[in-house]
Amino acid sequence: MLTKRIIPCLDIKNGRTVKGVNFVNLRDAGDPVALAKQYAEQGADELVFLDIAATLETRTTTHDMVREVARQIDIPFTVGGGVRSVEDAEKLLKSGADKVAVNSSAIKRPALIKELAQTFGNQCIVVAIDAKKLNDQWMEYLAGGTIPTDLKLFDWAKTAESLGAGEILFTSMNHDGVKTGFATKALKTLSTSLNIPIIASGGAGLKNHFVDVFKADAADAALAASVFHFGEISITDLKKELKEHNISIRL
């Protein structure tokens, strides 16, 4: 049976992990490769790397990092941040990334999704969406959630799917960092109206939050950062807990 996936997300700047990462047995918590390895050993199903300061100058460093991760890690991983063209994506995929994530650049130029899907196949195109619920309406945001748009979440997700997205990574800005659980209702709507996998992001604070989103069958995968980085939730324990709730999981 296909399992639900647990995905730690690492923010990258100049080829190094940012945000205070607090790992007990890690000499260099800023080393994405060491972190990735540790997560893979703990049972992470996939990894996501977000290059949060992607610029022309730092791109080569990112490619080197991607290559090193691919060299050492035997689970799939996605890289996002600064992908604006087929060439940008090609460099990441050639460096060894399994999938690329696009966000703002796809909102600015939706045809990018189509170009990427036609060149590399739908399976390696993740469309990341940051949205906020305002007056009962989920609205799409640009540039890491800093710039509002007039796009509605569900419309944009549908468009992304029709253009060739292989997966949607939905971050609820209302839930992100609050640690009170995922945006299960909105995720469920996405999950039933689209026919591609949905990754839940934003809001994980407790193991039960993962149980809830999967029990509701609102997502195919769940992504989190700080609860894993700070050791608040161990991936191994989380997966055991999910299994106890009869959720299909790889142990």
């Binding site: 296909l2 399992t3 639900k4 996936r5 199903d45 026919n195 591609i196 996998p197 195919d220």
Partner: peptide, 13 residues
């Protein structure tokens, strides 16, 4: 067929 999500993506037995 589209009675399931396509692609089949992830870990399966």
């Amino acid at each position: 067929s589209n009675s399931v999500k396509v692609p089949h993506m992830g870990w399966n037995t």
